[in-house]
Design a binder for these strands. Structure first.
Lengths: 175, 175
DNA sequence: AATAACATGTAACGCGTTACATGATTAC
DNA sequence: GTAATCATGTAACGCGTTACATGTTATT
C-alpha cells in the first residue's frame, strides 16, 4: 500500500486536490519515488476518506475537492515509516536496461549511453545550482530543510548515474 | 511488458528453468532491476513460448523445464532496448521513504537512517572487493565484462546511497 | 526418517494502465 | 470564440501478490 502512504506524504507537505497530486507525481522529486495517474488516485482518495485517513476540507471552483490529512492519517504514516520491510522490492526499467546493455553490440550500446550521459549531466548541473543558492540563503549549522535533504539525495543519485554512463562510454569496446 | 524483457535478458545470459529465474530475481544484480515471483513467471513463460520468443530445450529431473531464447526473442529484446521511453516510470519504496523521512521527528529519523548507512557501507565493501579481484584477473585495456559493467553501476549507486545517509545523519537536528 | 531445497502449477484478489466521458475556467 | 488547462469520474483490461496444492530429490 505504498500509494496510500505516498499520498499521505504529499498531503502532509500541503493540502491538495486529486488533480494536483497527480501533477506532483510527475515532477521532481516525487517522480523518483512513486507514480500514479489520476484514475488510480481518485478511487484511492475515496477509500482513504472512508478509512478516516484524510478529509475533504474545502471545495473550490470547477468542482475542486481539497483534501487534508487527519490525525489518524498522521499516525498511519508514522507507523508505516517506522516499520520498513527487510528487503525493498525494486522495479526500475532504467536499471533493467542497464543490465541488458551488453546484449547489444558496442555501437548500439554507445548510442544508448550517450543521451543518458548528456541528460544526467544537465540534471546534475540543475540540482547543484539549486543547492548552492539554497545554502547561500541558510545558516550553515541549521538542520537541512526537506527540500535540501531530498535535493542532496537526488544529486548524489544522478551523479552516480552520470559517472557510470561516462565510465561505461570510456571503457566500452569501440567498433 | 518489462517482465517479458527481463526474462529474455536472464535467458540470454544462460538458459534456465522458471524456478531458477525466480531465484535470480532475488539476487544481485537483478534484484535492483526487476522482481517477479514464480506464480507470475510461470504463466508469462507459457505465453512467451506461444509467442515464439523462447522454447523449451530440455526437461530435467523433478519435471524441470529448461527454456532458451529463440531468434525471434533476441530480435524482440534488441528492438525493445533500442526504443527506450522518454520518461522512465519509477516506483521505489526506498526513495519514497527517503522523501517522507522529515515527517518524523529527528530522533525517529536518525533511528531509521543508521541501519541504512551501516547496510550500504557493508555492500560497498563487498562490491569493491569483487571489483578489485576481477580487475586483477583482467588486462586493463580489455572492454569490461557484463559482471564488471553491472558491478560498477551497483557500486556507484550504493555509494551514493551510503554517502547521502552519512551526510543526513551528520546534518540532522540532534534532539 | 525427517527436513530442506527443488520444481511446477492454479485461483482469488488487489494494484496500475489505458481509454473514455464530462464539464468549468483561463488565456489568447 | 477557441484552445489549453483545470478538474472529476468510470470501465475494461493487464500486471503483480498471496495463498494454496502437489510432488521430487538431496542432505543430514
Amino acid at each position: 500500500m505504498a500509494l496510500r502512504h505516498a499520498i499521505l506524504g504529499l498531503l502532509t507537505e500541503d493540502r491538495a486536490s486529486g488533480y494536483a497530486l497527480a501533477r506532483r507525481f510527475k515532477r521532481q522529486p516525487w517522480r523518483y519515488a512513486w507514480h500514479a495517474q489520476y484514475s488510480q488516485i481518485h478511487p484511492e482518495l475515496s477509500r482513504m476518506v472512508q478509512d478516516g485517513l484524510i478529509t475533504q476540507v474545502a471545495g473550490g471552483a470547477r468542482g475542486r475537492k481539497i483534501y487534508s490529512v487527519t490525525r489518524a492519517g498522521e499516525n498511519e504514516l508514522r507507523t508505516w515509516l517506522l516499520n520498513p520491510p527487510e528487503n525493498f522490492v525494486v522495479r526500475s526499467e532504467f536499471v533493467l536496461r542497464v543490465l541488458l546493455l551488453l546484449t547489444l553490440d558496442p555501437r548500439d550500446a554507445r548510442a544508448l549511453l550517450a543521451p543518458i550521459a548528456a541528460a544526467s549531466a544537465e540534471e546534475v548541473a540543475t540540482l547543484r545550482a539549486a543547492i548552492v543558492s539554497a545554502d547561500a540563503a541558510t545558516r550553515p549549522d541549521a538542520p537541512p530543510s526537506w527540500e535540501r535533504l531530498t535535493a542532496e539525495f537526488s544529486l548524489r543519485s544522478v551523479e552516480a548515474q552520470h559517472g557510470w554512463a561516462v565510465w561505461a562510454l570510456a571503457h566500452l569496446d569501440r567498433s
